[in-house]
């Protein structure tokens, strides 16, 4: 499996797309640091990049990549290699190359302008989100044979988690505003990796505003070691579950 990871990894790093992605992140991060003297505000703008662009790029690139290497996968499976290592090899190679791009693109400028806890949190959540969305992309890729359909499903995932889900939550909260909602929202947040990542970052940034009752509740929860374990655990679950599901489908699939 490690040999497959290595081949695919180098193969992806050579493609123009990942290089563009890295350069885009590098350019925007440097530009943001140049435009604004306040590192807090820079992290805030970069938070939008991490919460919007990183999931989008991860999910679209991963699903396109999967279809582009369909022939390679078929060839590999014809060899005496088991399906699991082919599939997982692909997965690890894609996820780690995108993480590497994020780490260099967004992380490289940081030492020049000062490393802050918020910056570290930003990279940490960005990398976790990359893995989550690559997982979701692989799931959408194994669900259907049609490339366009799979990309559509992938985009739907992205839309759902970044936009639709929050709208639904807001609607639920408005309908049940007479009830204490803190614990309920905590559960609802866990069902969306993007929200979870945003709250981890918000607690690093908007401390004052979040200090109201709800904010204090969240801070008490996510600030405690149990909360940190919980949020990391849930995000890891968001990585593992789709991969496990898609691996199961892939193992039984007639290619």
């Amino acid at each position: 499996m490690s040999r497959i990871i290595r081949y695919v990894f180098y193969d992806i790093l050579r493609t123009r797309f990942v290089i563009f992605y890295t350069l885009f992140l590098l350019g925007s991060t440097f530009a943001l640091f140049q435009l604004d003297a306040d590192p807090g505000k820079v992290i805030l703008s970069m938070m939008n990049v991490v919460l919007m662009v990183v999931p989008l790029v991860s999910i679209v690139f991963a699903s396109i990549h999967f279809y582009n290497s369909y022939e390679f996968i078929e060839l590999m499976i014809a060899q005496p290699v088991n399906r699991k290592s082919v599939f997982m090899g692909q997965y690890f190679a894609v996820a780690s190359s995108l993480s590497l791009a994020l780490l260099t693109g967004a992380g490289l400028p940081m030492p020049f302008y000062g490393i802050t806890p918020a910056g570290i949190a930003l990279l940490y959540t960005g990398i976790l989100l990359t893995w989550v969305f690559v997982s979701l992309a692989f799931l959408s890729a194994v669900l259907t044979r049609d490339k366009a359909k799979a990309i559509g499903v992938a985009l739907l995932f992205w839309f759902y988690f970044s936009l639709i889900y929050d709208g639904l939550i807001l609607w639920v909260m408005y309908s049940f505003m007479d009830y204490p909602l803190e614990k309920v929202t905590l559960a609802l947040v866990s069902l969306n990796p993007v929200d979870l990542a945003r709250i981890i970052l918000l607690l690093q940034l908007d401390i004052s505003a979040l200090m109201g009752y709800t904010g204090a509740f969240y801070k008490a929860f996510f600030g405690s070691s149990a909360g940190i374990l919980f949020s990391a655990g849930v995000l890891v679950l968001w990585v593992v579950l789709p991969v496990w599901l898609s691996l199961r489908i892939f193992m039984r699939k007639d290619l």
Partner: peptide, 9 residues
Amino acid sequence: AAVFLWRSF
């Protein structure tokens, strides 16, 4: 409780 959606898209 809606404060936690702050800064979402």
